[in-house]
Every structure is written in structure tokens, then in C-alpha cells.
Amino acid sequence: MNGFISSFQRTARLTARHPLDAAHAVAFFIIVTSLISVTVDNATTSGNRDAFVIAIMWVVVLLATMLGCAAAYSQDYEDGSLELLVAHQRPLFPSVLGSMMGLWFFSTLPILLCVPLGAWMLTLSTSVWWMLLLTLLAGSIVFTLFGVLGAVLTLGIGRNGVLMALLVLPLYVPVLLLGVGACQRYANGETFEFALASLFAIAVALVTFVPFAIAALLRVSQEY
């Protein structure tokens, strides 16, 4: 019983020393719940079951993509090849864009290939499948970009999984709103062109700008 009490007290002390660490998990819960609420809310007004399924699929793909990006550059950071990259490659932009597209191709695309399976499991109407895949195509690129940004932001910090989610999830919201909105409008038979066009426009703009931010952060990670 002694061991129980002392260990419990030790955990309490550790939590008191770093209260933000314990708050991360709670924040993750709240943010993911908000993501689901904001996407499901449109569906409750229309009452269309497909709209619910679209919302759930988008959030699940979002979280899966983010997990896939969590390890980006961390191996390079630890074994020192990132230092070589930063020292030798100038400008860094093409190299960053290349590794991000590689990550999207080998880690995110497999998720998209499984989306039809998920849509079938959730019995989504087959007429909406192609629209779901089209919007997720743009969405997953943005998720990968911001995912890598989050991973690079938390380079060198241990226990960075939840913190990274906390940083990145708010950035996902505009794209999530537009993508789910376009797809749900299509499923409800409403006009979806504006949302779809905005989604792709944002994706193209982010592919252009986010690699610069990541390159800057990679340089920073080598400063002391």
C-alpha cells in the first residue's frame, strides 16, 4: 500500500510541475469534438444520412493523415542528416516540397485508397463516392502540409504527439469546413461549386507557401 500512495503522490507532483502536459490530452479531446460538431451540424439541419457519413469520413481521414505526418523529419533530426540537408541545400524549398509530396504519395494516398472501403462500411450512397474522393484529394494535401509543419514545429521535443495535434488541428478547420461543405452540398443536391473551387484554391495557395515556412523552421531547428 505504501508503494501505491507514494507513486500516486509522485504522479500528482509531476503533474503539478508541468500542468500544461496534462492539459494537452484534454485539449485534444475538446478540439476533436469541436471538429466533429462543426462538420456534423450541417447534417442535422438537412437530416441527410449521407451528410453524416461524409462528415465522419473527413474527420477520420484528417486524424489518420495527421498521424502519418507525425514522424516527418524526426529520424533525420536525430541522426544528423537534417543538419547536412540544411547546410548543403540552398534553397531548401524544392527539397521540402519533394519530401512532402513523397510523404503524401506513400503515406496519405494509401488512406485515400481505403476511403471507398470506409464509405462501403458506412453505406454511403455510391453517387457521392467520387465527390468524397475529389474533395479529400485536395483536403489530404492540405492535411499533409500542415501535418509536416506541426511535426517540424515540435522537432526535438519528446512526447510531441498530442502537442502537435493541438497546434495543427485549428489550422485544419477552414479547409475542413469548405471540403465537408462542398461534399455535403453535393449530396443534398445544392450548389457546391463555390466551396469546391475555394477548397482547391486554398490547397494550391498552401502548397506554394507552407513549404517556405517549413524550410524556415528546419533552419531554426539547427540553431542553438
Partner: peptide
Amino acid sequence: LFLFIGLIAL
């Protein structure tokens, strides 16, 4: 609000 909290946490 989440962005501000993220900045504080980071």
C-alpha cells in the same frame, strides 16, 4: 482561441 492555446503550449 485554440490557436492562442496552441501558441501558449508551444
